[in-house]
Design a protein around this nucleic acid. Structure first.
Length: 282
DNA sequence: CATTACCTGCAA
DNA sequence: TTGCAGGTAATG
């Protein structure tokens, strides 16, 4: 489940491999829908060859590969998408739907066993539109406990739903939302607009901690995530909530509970994360 | 606001 | 054989 740390891990690896490289050819296989155009009348397969990679950026869970023409390939891995750097000579394997041939003997390939991920060719206007739909990055100085508190005040739904909303904060997904709520001792079903200012301070600190830790460990590989060289991330051993249903809470020993919130499997500690708010001092 | 569709490998 | 995994768009 690639979230911000996984996508940023991918970006940091592909950047040195792509900058200055020229696209020599584009191959689409059975699932041609993986490559889309957001520009009417522009066919990516015809347009991409000859263009070179000029910059890489990331916004939330979107990877932005900017070309010297000013166009950008917007990549979203969704759940099982992978961006791979592979020698051109290596045969395309199952699930590799798109191969972008570079001028150094390597391919940039997009693999996805579930056909949810996309690579979209967009103009600067398309990138700006995407940017406008997303909230601040977790590390942005524009995001403060006060701004988070104010935004949550307008949210009558559950805090987990709010944190999964990319227009509130960009880049969080199921894993890091559960981790951040566990660290800040907030029940995932707490009504967002009831969070106190101190809870928002704690929650934002927790969000930044779990994202930074995952980045430091090149992302979480729970089942499928791999970086562009096929290597797993090292953050799974640092997870304290996600995937631990039925196991003892690492703080108090209470068995962790699994519920469904926002249609997602959600793991939390019923003792450390009470629905009625912060625990009174003991 | 919440829930479902999309998709398919895999565990139970 | 069934249902779970989940990011996002679409739907209720």
């Amino acid at each position: 489940m690639p979230e911000l740390p996984e996508v940023e891990t991918v970006r940091r690896i592909v950047e040195p491999a792509l900058l200055g490289r020229r696209i020599e050819g584009v191959t689409l296989r059975d699932f041609a829908g993986v490559l889309e155009s957001a520009i009417p009348g522009v066919d990516p397969v015809a347009t991409l060859p000859g263009q070179s990679f000029a910059a890489t950026n990331r916004r939330g869970k979107y990877l932005l590969l900017r070309l010297d023409s000013g166009l950008t390939l917007i990549v979203h891995l969704r759940m099982t998408g992978r961006l791979l750097l592979t020698p051109t000579a290596a045969p395309l394997v199952r699930f590799e739907h798109l191969a972008i041939r570079l001028d150094d003997g390597n391919d940039l390939r997009f693999s996805d066993q579930r056909k949810f991920g996309r690579v979209v060719l967009a103009s600067d206007a398309g990138v700006a539109l995407l940017d406008s739909r997303l909230g601040p990055e977790p590390g942005s100085p524009r995001l403060t406990a006060a701004s988070l508190h104010a935004a949550l005040k307008r949210r009558p739904g559950k805090i987990k739903n709010a944190l999964l909303d990319q227009s509130l904060i960009a880049g969080l997904g199921n894993i890091y939302v559960d981790e951040a709520l566990y660290r800040s001792r907030i029940h995932p079903e707490r009504v967002a607009n009831t969070l106190t200012q101190p809870e928002c301070v704690s929650l934002l600190r927790a969000v930044r901690h779990v994202i930074r830790t995952a980045l430091d460990n090149q992302g979480t590989t729970f089942s499928t995530f791999e970086n562009p060289y096929g290597e797993a991330g090292g953050n799974a051993v640092f997870l304290r909530a996600y995937g631990r249903a039925g196991l003892p809470c690492l703080r108090c020993g209470t068995p962790m509970v699994r519920i469904v919130v926002a249609g997602r499997g959600t793991t939390f500690c019923p003792t450390c994360q009470p629905l009625d708010g912060p625990m009174p001092p003991s």
